[in-house]
């Protein structure tokens, strides 16, 4: 279901020449986030996005990060009205992902499960948090104000699930779609290839979360077809492939991401 009026988000009015394809992708993602997902309502999905913004100013997260262990403080987040829409466990996950990426661990996912969140809810939450952050970070990087979040579309979660016999369990903290299971409604997920690397499969338990990530990365970075082609200079870009990989490496290094 789509809103009747197109949201006036991500207008081409920036002092920086942001490519139209990028802006179009952001508009599409805002629309997708506003609609009910597989495990969360539209209102909850927008609440997750808002929480990813609020985490940047979270006092508890600042104090946690100063601790030797990310679980060194026996305190919980005080929930805002926004946070109450998704609950304490979800708020905690969102905040840890945004503010302490180098110390994310299996415990975050296990704690969320123990609190009653399903694997599908956890994966959908990770997707919304990270994609919202990518859009916001683009604007922060350019010193531009963040776009307002869209109004949620009412309705219950759609409740779609990947059957257990198509899941690969144990490779990561969360189940993923098995390598050979991108068929039927999920045939598009590996972009027509027989298999995919782990970063593509990471969110595949919730296919629409992977589709969101693909919409984002196709425009911010490269398509699945372009990524392995190091000799290729993507059209319409002001930076070349080596510059792209330098930026990627430096961000990964600061975030202490082994992958």
């Amino acid at each position: 279901m789509r809103s009747e009026t197109a949201p006036a988000f991500f207008l081409d009015d920036s002092p920086y020449p942001i490519r139209e394809g990028v802006l179009e992708a952001y508009r599409e993602l805002w629309q997708r986030f506003s609609e009910p997902g597989d495990s969360w309502t539209g209102a909850q999905r927008i609440a997750i996005a808002q929480e990813s913004r609020d985490a940047k100013d979270c006092d508890l997260c600042v104090r946690r990060k100063q601790q030797l262990s990310p679980y060194g403080l026996n305190e919980s987040h005080v929930l805002s009205d926004n946070g109450k829409l998704i609950g304490a466990a979800a708020v905690d996950c969102v905040h840890r992902i945004v503010t302490d990426p180098a110390r994310l661990s299996r415990r975050m996912v296990e704690d969320a499960r123990s609190s009653g969140l399903s694997d599908e809810q956890i994966v959908e939450l990770i997707g919304i948090t990270c994609v919202t952050m990518a859009i916001d970070e683009h604007y922060r990087a350019l010193g531009l104000p963040l776009a307002p979040l869209p109004e949620p579309v009412p309705g219950p979660p759609r409740g779609r699930r990947i059957a257990e016999d198509r899941q690969e369990i144990g490779t990561a903290y969360v189940p993923m779609l098995a390598r050979d299971s991108a068929v039927g409604d999920e045939a598009d997920l590996w972009s027509g290839r027989r298999t995919a690397i782990h970063i593509i499969r990471a969110l595949s338990l919730v296919p629409d979360a992977l589709r969101d990530l693909t919409i984002l990365s196709n425009e911010q970075y490269l398509t699945l077809e372009e990524a392995p082609a190091f000799a290729l200079q993507p059209e319409g870009r002001a930076i070349d492939r080596l510059q792209m990989e330098l930026l990627a490496t430096r961000v990964s290094q600061v975030n202490e991401c082994f992958y």
Binding site: I18, R19, V22, I97, V98, P101, L104, I126, G127, T129, C130, V131, M133, A134, I135, D136, E137, H138, A141, I199, A202, L203, L213, L216, S217, E219, Q220, Y221, I239, M244, L247, A248, R250, V251, S252, N255, C257, Y259
Partner: peptide, 12 residues
């Protein structure tokens, strides 16, 4: 855009 994308991908 690239740096923002890897802020996302590292977290995923």
């Amino acid at each position: 855009a690239i740096a923002a994308n890897f802020q996302c991908m590292t977290r995923v």
